[in-house]
Design a protein around this nucleic acid. Structure first.
Lengths: 203, 203
DNA sequence: ACCATCAGAATGAACGTTCATTCCTTTTAG
DNA sequence: CTAAAAGGAATGAACGTTCATTCTGATGGT
């Protein structure tokens, strides 16, 4: 298909392009207007496809949303691991990850807003429960890091979940505040915020 | 019937009782199943009133939800201020407030879950925006506290919003994890978690 | 003491709207 | 020409809200 590959921006997207358009449209609408401000018909319109077409790519809305979530998780994970080295000391690694997360959220506000919506929804709780007992993921990098911090006695002797809370809680909160316009995070502030988180964590 | 006012637990609630039943039912359903697992018909059933009756007490669902929020905010605020004294040092006051919040969330999981839902919704953002620029509320206690901490040079020189994030972020996260059953917070852990938050905050 | 009348509280079936999903038609690619 | 893909109107379920009706308890006339 597409014997002449250029031109034709509107019509005839390749199959993957179309799937991506749908996913992107869903991301934008859900991030901006919440799960319930994103009806399938509107997603279809924004993606430039018919309403029924979505169902050729996704069994139903739940599946679409879950696949979108997986996509984002994967992207975020990739960003986090970029330049990450298990050789460095625990503190440096924590700061690397924290900075990467914060930068990512700030430069991809739509992703961040969607992830927040997702986590505060029936989907999110199920997903989280699974994660704490099963799969491999972003959090495993953190889990590894904190476990190492524990045996080296550089972080406080607290349950893993509490360490997560001390590390993520402020980062997520501050990212949300930045995106909602309640504060402007520049590089200096990002550094200070993450250093403060480390102060909470360190023994 | 009912010549004598006692007995008859089922029938004939006083007007305020009925309002409270509706609010309580809404709280339970929204806390447990989210905003969208709480249709008016179900709230009515749980409250033991007819669907139309709700509209004699609340103009519409939005109003019901906002009044519920105000009720909870008021209760929480009262709990926070119980035994609070502006005379004590900043650190002690922070620990008092943190402990009170955490204890409240743990012993009132429905309230906590509802408040979380509320904050992650169109309602919540509007409300927050208003707060940062206008009204008197719970957060003002914190604001006062942090401002005093700043001038006394006992907390880090950071924007108010970032201080909020460092203080609340972990507390909320850890409360959520407790309620979802990912960790069991006892008094010892509560104390350690709050102390860790303070480590993040203090200069 | 009795009952007729009445006000307003309560009710829940019915309505209109919104939405996810389906299904049949049209378009496109090979 | 055929089969797959795309389209979008039709469908039916779920929801918030309304409103004509019923219920209840108080009032006052006899």
């Amino acid at each position: 298909m597409n014997v002449h590959s250029d031109g034709e921006a509107e019509k005839s997207m390749a199959k993957l392009e179309k799937r991506d358009e749908i996913v992107r449209a869903a991301l934008e609408l859900i991030a901006e207007h919440g799960f319930h401000g994103a009806p399938m018909a509107m997603i279809a319109e924004k993606a430039g496809v018919g309403a029924g077409t979505i169902y050729r790519y996704f069994e139903n809305k739940d599946v679409l949303i879950n696949e979108l979530y997986r996509d984002l998780e994967e992207r975020l994970c990739a960003v986090l691991m970029e330049g990450y080295s298990s050789e460095q000391p625990v503190r440096e690694r924590f700061i690397h990850l924290g900075t990467a997360i914060l930068r990512y959220c700030i430069s991809n506000p739509l992703d961040f807003r969607f992830l927040e919506q997702f986590h505060n929804s029936p989907y999110g709780v199920v997903h989280r429960r699974d994660k704490l007992f099963g799969k491999t993921d972003q959090k495993d990098v953190y889990r590894e890091l904190f476990e190492e911090g524990l045996v080296q006695h550089v972080v406080k002797q607290l349950p893993m979940v509490v360490l997560f809370a001390l590390a993520f809680g402020p980062l997520i909160t501050v990212a949300r505040d930045h995106i909602l316009g309640f504060v402007v995070l520049d590089e200096a502030l990002i550094g200070q915020a993450i250093a403060a988180c480390w102060d909470g964590l360190k023994r």
